[in-house]
Simulated scan of single mutants.
Amino acid sequence: MVQKASYESQHYNRYEPTPYPVLERLFDYVELEQTDRIVDFGCGTGRLNFYVHHRFQPTVVGVEMNEFYYHVANENKNSYLGVFGFSESRIIFENSLAQDYAIHPRDNVFYFFNPFSIQIFINVINNIVHSFEEESRDIQLILYYAPEDYVFFLENKTAFQLKREIPLPGNVYEKFLIYSLEVIAPTRKVD
């Protein structure tokens, strides 16, 4: 899909949907639960949201700053619900800048397909970490085509740990990186 409108800023990248074969490869390695709550930053028309919801039935949240795509995503949601009859409450789209999205205490999986600059990414990650501090839970970040500055920031300035790299055929840069921030269980004292 060709981007119809853009936000006037050097901090946001052009919308490009993740191809279905790439999503299939990712979710051959990553299992989601119905209790998960997935957030897709820069969701566009909702491709990832519908794919993940259909495959695993978790709650999916698409955050999209572009008003045109936000409306298309909601139209797609109405069509999807009409065909499959799922509950509307488990598919949510928000028309918002990523850094302004209020992280829900149950949000635990975050998807990024290089949607914005490192400055915005840092703000979003800081929001996620703050939410983790308020409501501890295991959190996963899924990065597709992650820029080097995203990786440097996560590995040198945060407690996120790289858990898995999922290479894709063809291009050395085309891969998924899975980072996690996990709740550490308290150790028990032995008398």
Rank of each mutant, 00 (worst) to 15 (best):
P17C: 02
E31P: 09
I128C: 04
K4Q: 14
F153P: 12
D100A: 09
P21V: 00
H53L: 00
G46K: 02
V63W: 00
E75Y: 08
I91Y: 00
Y70I: 09
H71I: 07
V39D: 05
V22L: 05
N114I: 06
Q10M: 15
Y69F: 15
C43P: 11
N123L: 05
E33N: 07
V39H: 03
D149E: 15
S87D: 15
V151N: 06
N49C: 09
Y179M: 04
E24Q: 06
V63M: 08
F84M: 02
Y69L: 09
Y70P: 11
F152P: 08
R188V: 13
S180P: 12
K163E: 14
A159V: 07
G46Q: 09
R188D: 14
R137K: 08
V22R: 04
L81K: 06
A159H: 15
K77W: 05
Y12G: 03
L141S: 00
T35Q: 06
R37F: 07
N114T: 14
D149N: 13
Y51W: 08
R37H: 07
Q3P: 12
F160L: 00
F50Q: 07
I122T: 13
I118Y: 07
K77S: 08
V2D: 15
R106N: 08
V60T: 08
Q99C: 04
V151T: 12
E174S: 13
N74V: 06
Q161K: 06
N114Y: 13
P186L: 12
H130I: 06
H130K: 13
I142S: 02
E88W: 03
S117T: 06
D149M: 02
E24C: 05
Y144M: 04
R47K: 10
F27R: 01
Y69I: 04
E33L: 12
S96W: 07
R137F: 02
E33T: 11
F50N: 07
A185H: 13
I120R: 07
V151G: 10
Y144G: 03
R47A: 08
R106Y: 11
I118L: 13
F132I: 04
Y144E: 11
V172M: 08
L181M: 01
R37S: 12
Y101S: 07
V60H: 00
F86W: 11
F113A: 04
R90P: 08
E148K: 10
S180N: 15
H53V: 01
V83A: 04
G46L: 01
V172D: 11
N13M: 14
H11V: 08
N123T: 04
N13R: 06
F152T: 15
Y15G: 04
N78W: 02
M1T: 13
E8D: 15
V61M: 04
V30Q: 01
F116D: 13
H104N: 12
Y101W: 07
V60M: 00
E33D: 14
I178C: 01
M1V: 13
G62F: 02
L81W: 05
R25A: 15
Q140Y: 10
S96E: 09
